[in-house]
């Protein structure tokens, strides 16, 4: 099960909040949400604090997210990944292409610094 919500914060930052599991059966929902949200020139926080499981289906969504953001000169910060998910992102070499923060406040700060 995967719950997804979006919210617009200060300076047009979009907060995409997900919780549950990102696996083969739920990844398509996240993919659809990212396609809708990661528009050109957007600033996004992907809040993963509520994600307790992510498989390679999630990595494929991350790849899509990265490509979509690159294309549109957009920025994302991944928020609050749990340790095993962080480790998996690191082992597969995905982490070096993403900025991360431990909570929404520090993510906002990072986003405002990099996208000015």
């Amino acid at each position: 099960m995967l719950e997804i919500s979006t919210e617009t914060l200060e300076n047009d930052v979009v907060l995409l909040k997900v919780s549950g599991a990102i696996d083969g059966s739920t990844a398509p929902e996240l993919r659809a949400a990212i396609v809708d949200t990661a528009t050109p020139h957007c600033k996004m926080l992907l809040d993963m604090q509520g994600i307790h499981f992510m498989s390679s289906a999630g990595l494929r969504v991350m790849l899509l997210l990265h490509r979509q953001l690159q294309k549109g000169d957009s920025h994302v910060v991944l928020i609050g990944m749990m340790e095993p998910i962080y480790d998996a992102m690191e082992a597969t070499g995905f982490l070096k292409y993403f900025q991360t923060a431990s909570n929404v406040e520090s993510g906002l700060e990072l986003l405002c610094k990099t996208s000015v």
């Binding site: 498989s55 390679s56 494929r60 790849l63 990265h66 490509r67 082992a91 070499g93 995905f94 292409y97």
Partner: peptide, 15 residues
């Protein structure tokens, strides 16, 4: 290969 740049990656194989 984890060292392949993201933009050159195929989507599969990580499982």
């Amino acid at each position: 290969d984890p060292n392949t740049p993201l933009w050159e990656r195929d989507t599969g194989g990580w499982g």
